[in-house]
């Protein structure tokens, strides 16, 4: 509908001109619209990576599902894992509107040809990690993703609206867990600070390399896939997080963190990019384990999926047979 309106409003031109006009007018590109090949490829890569991150992201928290220390926390964590599987489903469906299929993307994930967020290659060592992932990792994800609700590609933008709402619940639940632990025993408070120490820098690295080292950013911004630079989002995240850390009573592990009166924001140190690059190259603490688990689930489940396909084919054959009989 939106595209039809735009088509009327904008006089007929080449498909390229029309695409540019729709994007410039902050309207949405829909699956049947013409789009440049590179736009399509960029979106497929980004949406697939996002979907993979949701699915792989179930593992670090899933590590604590069977050991959650209260039934309420177990239920919250299980509901979150379920939401993440759901997010993976919407996102794979959004990617499918661009002409790829989920099975193909899964193959690329388990063969290492497509990436997922490197944050999930770090281990969850205590239950406080569950809270810190909610607060910092989901928080950083929300900073990255809220602008995607206005992404130029319609199916992705719409998926992001729902995902962001649910992510904000996850973040709130994570923060609430940390507040509870900080009001608890000395051991619980130490657990929280230790988790913050381990997750702070990886969370900052979720925004990607600094703008000077981010070659694809400019084009994605022109296409309204991306709206803010990596450094801009990272600054925004730090500015939001510092007061939350104070409220919580934890120390963010950055000696260079200080208020910049002139800028009206927080100055902070430089993450250790060499470590991130090692994690991206596959040398992170959990890279192999995460992919192995995903591959095992996929391969162990192959006979189940084949059975479902065979069953559906039999039912379809029966159906068409019945229709033929009735037709005669």
């Amino acid at each position: 509908m939106v595209t039809a309106e735009v088509a009327e409003a904008i006089p007929a031109q080449t498909p390229e001109d029309r695409f540019e006009a729709v994007v410039a007018a902050e309207q949405r590109i829909e699956p049947r619209d013409w789009m440049p090949d590179a736009y399509r490829a960029t979106l497929i890569r980004q949406i697939a990576q996002h979907a993979h991150s949701e699915i792989i992201g179930m593992q670090p928290e899933g590590n604590w599902l069977t050991r959650a220390p209260s039934l309420r926390r177990k239920a919250i964590l299980l509901a979150k894992a379920q939401d993440e599987a759901g997010h993976g489903l919407y996102l794979y469906a959004a990617a499918e509107t661009l002409g790829v299929d989920r099975a193909e993307l899964t193959e690329k994930l388990i063969s290492g040809r497509q990436k997922y967020s490197s944050i999930f290659n770090y281990p969850t060592l205590t239950f406080a990690d569950v809270g810190v992932i909610g607060w910092l990792v989901d928080g950083a994800a929300i900073c990255n993703q809220v602008p995607l609700c206005r992404c130029s590609y319609g199916p992705y933008a719409r998926a992001m609206v729902r995902i962001c709402k649910e992510e904000s619940f996850h973040q709130r639940q994570g923060y609430e867990l940390l507040m509870t632990l900080m009001r608890g025993t000395e051991a619980q408070r130490r657990m929280v600070q230790d988790a913050v120490d381990r997750w702070w820098w990886p969370s900052l690295m979720m925004f990607g390399p600094s703008d000077a080292d981010s070659p694809n950013s400019a084009r994605s911004m022109a296409w309204r896939i991306k709206r803010h630079s990596n450094d801009e989002l990272r600054r925004r995240f730090v500015d939001m997080t510092v007061p939350q850390a104070e409220h919580l009573g934890v120390t963010l592990p950055d000696p260079e963190l200080r208020w910049n009166e002139e800028r009206g924001g927080w100055d902070f140190g430089e993450p250790d990019w060499s470590e991130l690059n090692r994690v991206i190259r596959g040398q992170g603490p959990c890279n192999a384990q995460r992919i192995d688990r995903r591959r095992a689930a996929h391969e162990d489940g192959a006979w189940v999926r084949e059975a479902a396909v065979a069953y559906a084919a039999k039912r379809a054959a029966e159906q068409s047979h019945t229709e033929e009989e009735n037709g005669k």
Binding site: I55, M58, Q59, G62, L65, T66, L71, K74, A75, L78, A79, A81, Q82, A85, G86, G88, L89, Y92, R102, R293, R294, A296, A297, D300, G301, A302, V304, R305, A308
Partner: peptide, 26 residues
Amino acid sequence: LIEWCTRAPELEEEVALANLGLDLLG
């Protein structure tokens, strides 16, 4: 049922098995 989490044969089954687990946990 929770032990199936991240091990299910398909994503739809991840969602469904977690859902069943949540019902029983409730």
